[in-house]
Design a binder for these strands. Structure first.
Lengths: 182, 182
DNA sequence: CTAGAGTGTTCTGTAAACAGAACGCCGCAT
DNA sequence: ATGCGGCGTTCTGTTTACAGAACACTCTAG
């Protein structure tokens, strides 16, 4: 493959995640390499994003860390927007001529809030609540949200989602942008 | 054209899953290799399990298939159900007392159809269309679907989604079941 | 019966992922 | 100070994933 050697490419995120998980468990690089049955040189370069690991290597490293391999990838489990109490997962991005559609899974801890500034003109958001309760605010309006509820609103104005004081809020968020994203 | 029932046994490896997805989309091996920017020999051996692919290769293949890489892995949450013309990715399942909510990403090839029998009483479905066009049929009604459209209907009656004759249909599908799934 | 354009496979040389050794660095003994 | 055991990085030779070519095969056209 004629792929450029990019220190911050797709593998870099994976490497950083591995290192974070390893250190969170108080494991040394050598210890994890031994447990995984791979060379510690391999693990070193993998963590620092200087390697493009094979599937076998990834499985070998994920196992002793006790996480499914999917948790190491940045396209499904990774894109954590670390605001206190909020986890956002970008599930899918569909790029079409004249329109880009993004799907997020939003999870707000009790009392947590996600505030968005106005997006560009023509942007539209939809929300389908999966569980929990909360409110969405847009255009000066406040709408209560419960499981199964659906809202749709223009996002070219400031808006916010807030979980209830004692309940989580989990929802699918679909954002349609008329001009393709940069 | 294509009709849908159930996934295959989950014992298939990454290669088998890629092949299933590719064939579900009606792509030839050569075509997918070209779209992914990898050699077709590589893809051939990858699909038949004779290779241990690198992360770059996996990303390259997952992209044109339109699934997150995690969906190709064995240890999923993001199991992929592929059948002729249709690809369904289970993105998330939320189990709560008295209710189970499932989120799917549905992708129908032009002309493909997904037919569902009546679910149990009280089941409700929602659909947010991400791209393409098609129709949804429920309760004798036929509703046209375009990007950004949202439908919500009782699923305790037979219903069907169909892509347009010349366009794909991609959508988020949320299913709320009042009694927890087995 | 070719000829051609498709398919998926197997082959070939190159680039790189791999295991493991060698290295430099730091803390803590004595 | 001089070890010594730990750490993570860099080096070295072997293995192998890779791109692309060559291949065998199946259609369809003429």
């Amino acid at each position: 493959m004629a792929r450029v050697v990019e220190p911050s490419g797709s593998g870099a995120g994976v490497g950083a995640r591995i290192r974070a998980l390893r250190e969170a468990r108080g494991l040394s690089l050598s210890a994890l390499a031994a447990q995984a049955g791979i060379g510690k040189g391999s693990l070193s370069e993998l963590e620092t994003g200087r390697r493009n690991p094979t599937l076998d290597t990834l499985y070998a490293v994920a196992a002793p860390l006790g996480v499914p391999l999917a948790a190491l990838l940045d396209d499904h489990d990774g894109a954590v927007l670390a605001h206190h109490g909020m986890v956002t997962t970008r599930v899918r991005v569909v790029r079409e001529p004249g329109r880009t559609t993004e799907v997020y899974l939003i999870r707000l801890a009790p009392g947590a809030e996600r505030v968005s500034p106005a997006h560009s003109r023509g942007v539209e958001e939809q929300l389908v609540v999966l569980g929990g309760a909360g409110v969405v605010e847009y255009g000066g309006r406040t709408v209560a949200l419960g499981p199964g509820d659906h809202v749709r609103f223009a996002a070219d104005q400031p808006h916010a989602y807030r979980a209830g004081p004692d309940t989580e809020l989990e929802a699918v968020n679909v954002i349609v942008t008329p001009v393709p994203l940069g």
